[in-house]
Amino acid sequence: MAKVAFLLAGGFEDSEMKNPYDAVKEAGHEAVIIGLEKGAKCDGKKGTVSYNADLGASEAKSEDFDAVIIPGGGAPEALRVNDDVVRFVKEVNEEGKLIAGICHGPQVMISADILKGKSATCYIGIRDDVKLAGAEYRDEEVVVSENIITSRTPFDEPAFIREILAKLN
């Protein structure tokens, strides 16, 4: 069983959190929501789901987790400017553990400076940012590049979830 961190702030894309979160738990893994502060309420941008952070980013230790998933929407913009979030993602990457981001999720990877030399995809609106961060951009439903998994939009969730579960099992 893996312990999986979900990085979350308000304004996330509802399905990009709910579907991977539910799939990870259904597969028997532990899912922990890491927010900007412990207990912080995170509402989806469409208002269909809401979560409370189990842990604040300042408390997150990379050695306690096997993987990190970053849902898209507006949340990655708030997460990427938090030094503790960036530190955590950098440390998880240094340990070679799985980091998966969908839609705007790769914005956090950009701020953590972990995309150099990797292949990645993302929401088209941040495509140039991904390229400028040193990644080879691919317009594909899911891209697996070493320990990094990326996808573009909610339509790509089945492939995104499939690749995450394959790496965790």
Rank of each mutant, 00 (worst) to 15 (best):
M1Y: 04
A5W: 02
A5K: 06
G10Q: 08
G11L: 11
G11Y: 07
D14F: 01
S15Q: 12
S15W: 05
E16K: 04
M17K: 10
K18S: 13
D22K: 13
D22L: 08
K25M: 03
E30W: 03
V32I: 15
E37T: 12
A40L: 14
K45G: 10
G47D: 01
V49I: 15
V49N: 11
A53E: 02
D54V: 06
A57T: 00
E59C: 01
K61D: 09
S62W: 01
E63L: 06
D64I: 02
D66F: 09
P71N: 09
P71S: 07
G72N: 11
G74E: 08
A75I: 02
P76H: 07
P76F: 07
P76Q: 03
E77N: 14
E77T: 10
A78N: 15
A78T: 07
N82M: 03
D83G: 11
V85N: 08
R87V: 00
F88T: 04
K90E: 14
N93W: 00
L98G: 06
I99P: 13
G101V: 01
G101L: 03
I102N: 11
I102Q: 09
C103F: 12
C103T: 01
P106L: 07
M109P: 13
M109Q: 12
I110C: 12
S111V: 02
S111W: 01
D113Q: 14
K116I: 06
G117L: 12
K118R: 15
C122M: 11
C122W: 05
G125D: 12
G125I: 09
V130A: 13
V130L: 13
Y137T: 02
D139R: 09
E141Y: 00
V142E: 02
V143M: 13
V144Y: 06
S145W: 03
S145T: 06
E146T: 10
E146W: 00
I148C: 10
I149M: 08
S151G: 15
T153V: 12
P154R: 04
D156Y: 07
E157M: 15
E157I: 15
P158Y: 03
A159N: 10
I161V: 15
L165S: 08
A166T: 13
K167N: 10
N169W: 01
N169A: 14
